[in-house]
C-alpha cells in the first residue's frame, strides 16, 4: 500500500487509463500549465501533450457538447468543469444530450464519457462556487453519479467510470483534494453502484457520502466513547444507488440517520428515507428517520454562516442520541 492524496489518486486513475487506451483524453479550462484550479492535472500536459490534455476556450456548452460528440464517435473523453456550479452554463448537454442518446436512439449509440467537476463548499467561495448539486443529477435517468470520499474510492471508481459506456458524473469534493489515504500499488477498480460500510456498528445506521463521510466517522468515534456503536455507510455512487446496503444495515441497527452537505429540501436524504419507508424494513425502525443536511439557503460567504448551515459532528452526535433515546 502507498499513501496518496485524493487529488493525486484522481490524476493517477486518469493517467493510467490514458497510458492504456489512446482513445482516452481530457478537455477542460486551464488543465494544462495551470494544472487545473485545484492542481489535479499537474504534470499531465508534460506527459501526454496538448493533444490529449486539451485546454479549452471558456465555452462550456461547446466543449462539454464536444465531449459527448467525441464519445458517440468513438473516443472516451474525460471533461472537466472547474466548479460543479458551472454545469448550469451547459445544462442542455448534461440534461438533454448525454443521458438521453442511448435510450432515445434505441440502445444503438453509446456515450462513454466522464464529466469531472469540483463540488461542495467550505472554501469561502460563496453562493455560486460552493453548491452540492448531486440531487439534480440523480433526477436524470441515463446518468451515473459518483461522489468519492477517499483517495482509494476516487481512484478505483474513476477507473471504472472511464471504462463505463455511459455518461458518468464524477463529483470531486473540494475540501478533500489535499487529504491522504492508502491505496494498493497494484491496479484495482471499484464497481459503480456499490456502497461501502466505512464503519461497522450495531446501534444506528448513518447513511452519507462525500466529505460528510469523515464528519460522520468522527462523530461515530465520539459516540463510541459513550458506548454507542454507529454504522457508517458511504454510498459512493448515488446513481444507481445501492439501496440494498442501506436496507441491510437498517434491518440490523433499527435506526437511520441520513447526512449530506446538499440542501435538505429535494436532497437525496428524502430519496433514501423513502426507499426504506416503502419496504418492510420500515417495520424494523425503532424511531423516526432523521435527515441532517444544509439549511435551505444559498451558501453564504461569511465563514461563520457557511459552517453554521451544515451538519457537523456535534449535530450528528445529538441526532444519534435523539433517535436512540
Amino acid at each position: 500500500m502507498v499513501e496518496i492524496t485524493y487529488a493525486n489518486a484522481i490524476k493517477d486513475a486518469i493517467s493510467e487509463e490514458m497510458r492504456k487506451d489512446d482513445n482516452v483524453f481530457m478537455m477542460g479550462e486551464d488543465i494544462g500549465v495551470y494544472r487545473g484550479a485545484f492542481g489535479v492535472t499537474g504534470g499531465m500536459v508534460e506527459e501526454f501533450g496538448e493533444d490529449r490534455i486539451m485546454d479549452t476556450p471558456i465555452s462550456e456548452t461547446a466543449f462539454v457538447g464536444a465531449a459527448i460528440g467525441a464519445a458517440v464517435s468513438g473516443m472516451r473523453p474525460i471533461v472537466e468543469i472547474m466548479f460543479s456550479d458551472f454545469m448550469s452554463v451547459c445544462w442542455d448537454m448534461i440534461l438533454n444530450q448525454a443521458p438521453k442518446m442511448h435510450y432515445m436512439f434505441g440502445g444503438k449509440v453509446n456515450v462513454p464519457m466522464v464529466l469531472r467537476t469540483a463540488s461542495g463548499g467550505g472554501t469561502g467561495a460563496a453562493a455560486q462556487h460552493s453548491q452540492s448539486l448531486e440531487a439534480m443529477l440523480c433526477h436524470i435517468p441515463g446518468l451515473k453519479v459518483i461522489v468519492p470520499s477517499t483517495p482509494y474510492d476516487a481512484k478505483g471508481l474513476l477507473k471504472s467510470a472511464i471504462r463505463d459506456n455511459n455518461p458518468v458524473m464524477f463529483l470531486e469534493q473540494k475540501l478533500l483534494y489535499r487529504t491522504k489515504g492508502m491505496i494498493p500499488e497494484e491496479e484495482y477498480t471499484i464497481p459503480i453502484g456499490v456502497a461501502d460500510v466505512k464503519r461497522e456498528g450495531k446501534d444506528c445506521t448513518i447513511v452519507t457520502y462525500g466529505r460528510m463521510v469523515h464528519t460522520c466517522l468522527n462523530a461515530a468515534k465520539q459516540l463510541e466513547e459513550e458506548n454507542i456503536d454507529v454504522e457508517v455507510i458511504d454510498l459512493r455512487t448515488l446513481l444507481p444507488m445501492d439501496k440494498e446496503a442501506v436496507l441491510k444495515s437498517v434491518r440490523k441497527t433499527k435506526h437511520l440517520i441520513i447526512v449530506h452537505e446538499a440542501v435538505k429540501t429535494g436532497g437525496l436524504g428524502g430519496e433514501i428515507a423513502a426507499s426504506v419507508a416503502e419496504t418492510d424494513v420500515f417495520n424494523y425502525l425503532d424511531a423516526p428517520i432523521k435527515r441532517l443536511a444544509s439549511e435551505d439557503v444559498p451558501v453564504p460567504f461569511c465563514p461563520i454562516l457557511e459552517k453554521g448551515i451544515l451538519p457537523d459532528e456535534d449535530k450528528i452526535v445529538k441526532a444519534v442520541k435523539e433517535v436512540l433515546a
Partner: peptide, 29 residues
C-alpha cells in the same frame, strides 16, 4: 464578511453589489 457589509456578509469579494449606486453585482459566473 461583516454584517455591515454591502451584502451583509453573505456575498463576499465575488458578489459585491449595491443597487443604490447602480452596482448590480460582481458575478462568479
Amino acid at each position: 464578511a461583516r454584517e455591515t457589509g454591502v451584502c451583509k456578509g453573505k456575498g463576499g469579494s465575488m458578489h459585491i453589489a449595491d443597487k443604490s449606486v447602480g452596482v448590480l453585482g460582481a458575478n462568479g459566473i
